[in-house]
Design a protein around this nucleic acid. Structure first.
Length: 427
RNA sequence: GGAGGAUUAGCAUAAUUGGUAAUGCAGCAGUCUUGAAAACUGCCGGGCUAACGCCCUUGGGGGUUCGAGUCCCUCAUCCUCCGCCA
């Protein structure tokens, strides 16, 4: 959520941001916001004046009643009218504030100057050139879906039977490999990168979803349990960032770094028929997420750190990847700057997104009311929040099965994972 | 699911039969001091205002009243007990 004061003082900056994000049509919302804001301030001034009268006269009434001298009936009658007027004025004010809030909740975040201009994923900029570890297979590799079936480690068909399309089942060594990946990544981040492990709930309430920016704009992408008004988390970012919702953190606590495993649930509405084979698009997948809370001045260094923490996993596993800096038309609404890590799929002959590392600056902190008292100051300030996948296993699994494939059709387990799997070859 | 109790600022604690949120600690700034401590003054949730000031804020929402921390309704969370349960 943007600061209304910023919008009032620099509306042209917001308009420029919307244009850069290829959402110029939303600039009418900024105009609407400015009108509502002016009207709100006008009404508040009048309402406050009347409340001052009411408070003063009410104190007079109290004095009269306490002394038992004279009658307050006339004053009470007068105040009845004043109270009615205040009531209707406050009703108008709260209606305006609801409208203002509704607009603020859907306006995207400011963009960092580094974010390149662009209108689609094609305009993203390569930030880190491909790293291949010299292990890309030189034969015709079988895609992960056929290979997984043949080796008996993945069962998408039965997943579709018991739940629906896009809910994968891992069996035998597949299940163990998945669990090894997750344990490996969690151990790596907690032991080598200093993250505190969190095992969060997989369902959250609406306040939490609003805090991270997934609601109301992206509510249709999230599974909803109507009976209990709970949402299945699309990422551990939601519960972990909301750990500190409505909290006042201590300066010396910062930065806070959390790593969390969670299953992730996404409806992926409107994306049927495009890149949907196997793991390329699923409704449930597993992910280790890194989340940081920092002082504002430290957040961009922290972003580079998160990116490197995610890359370290791929380097340890020797999975070929590259890093993109997302352009203004492709970056998510909540983020001010974002890197995507993509892993190479030899069978698909393309890179697949396996991680997103973003700095949200104070956009989420403002929504979720996460503050701290800066050292040397007496006033609270909003923290900056960041997160990065470290990483999602679904596309990672694709890349692993294909890159570690042998000409005989078996799969070698990456060295770093063997102590977790207990076996070094599948098939 | 049922019964009772609780929720006040970063933390901790107050507030007569309804009369308009008090105090302590921590933090920030200043005065004093060679420096520090102590002491004293102001600030220390948000909004409106050029400023003086004014308004709002007692878990969320609603109601009664001239006036609600206090009374009523409702929801959430926590504690105690009962019931159910992997």
């Amino acid at each position: 959520m943007l600061d209304i004061n910023l919008i009032r003082q620099h509306p042209e900056e917001i308009a420029g941001m919307l244009k850069k994000r290829r959402q110029a049509e939303d600039s009418s919302k900024v105009d609407e916001l400015l009108e509502l804001d002016a009207e709100r301030r006008r009404l508040i001034k009048r309402s406050d004046e009347m409340k001052a009268v009411r408070n003063r006269v009410s104190r007079e009434i109290a004095v009269i009643k306490r002394s038992g001298q004279g009658s307050a009936d006339e004053l009470i009658l007068e105040m009845k009218d004043v109270a009615d007027e205040i009531g209707s004025m406050d009703e108008t004010i709260s209606r305006i504030e609801r409208q203002t809030e509704a607009i603020l909740l859907v306006l995207p975040n400011r963009l960092h100057p580094d974010v390149p201009e662009g209108s689609s994923a094609d305009d993203n900029v390569v930030y880190r050139e491909p790293v291949s570890f010299g292990r890309t297979p030189d034969f015709n590799v079988t895609n992960h879906l056929d290979l997984g079936n043949r080796l008996g480690i993945l069962d998408f068909e039965r997943g579709a039977k018991i739940t629906g399309s896009g809910f994968p089942v891992y069996t035998g060594k597949g299940a163990k490999l998945e669990r090894a990946l997750l344990n490996f990544m969690l151990d790596y981040h907690t032991e080598k990168h200093g993250y505190t492990e969190v095992f969060p709930p997989f369902m959250v309430n609406e306040d939490s979803l609003r805090g991270t920016g997934n609601w109301p704009k992206f509510a249709d992408q999230v599974y909803y349990m109507n009976e209990d008004k709970l949402y299945a988390i699309p990422t551990a970012e939601v519960p972990v960032t909301n750990l500190h919702r409505d909290e006042m953190l201590k300066d010396e606590q910062l930065p806070l770094s959390y790593a969390a495993y969670s299953a992730c649930f996404r409806r992926e509405a409107g994306s049927y028929g495009k890149d949907t084979r196997g793991f390329l698009r699923v409704h449930q997948f597993n992910k280790v997420e890194m989340v940081k809370f920092t002082r504002p001045e430290a957040s961009y260094d922290a972003l580079e750190e998160i990116l490197q923490n995610a890359e370290a996993i791929l380097k340890a596993l020797e999975i070929p990847y590259r890093v993109l800096l997302l352009c203004s038309g492709d970056i998510s609404a909540s983020a001010a700057k974002c890197y995507d890590i993509e892993v190479w799929s030899p069978a698909e002959k393309k890179y697949l997104e396996a991680s997103s590392c973003s700095n949200f600056e104070d956009y989420q902190a403002r929504r979720a009311n996460i503050r701290f008292k800066p050292a040397g100051s007496s006033k609270p300030a909003y923290v900056h929040t960041l997160n990065g996948s470290g990483l999602a296993t679904s596309r990672l699994m694709v890349s692993l099965l294909e890159n570690y494939q042998t000409p005989e059709g078996t799969v070698t387990v990456p060295e770093a994972l063997r102590k977790y799997t207990g076996f070094d070859v599948i098939g």
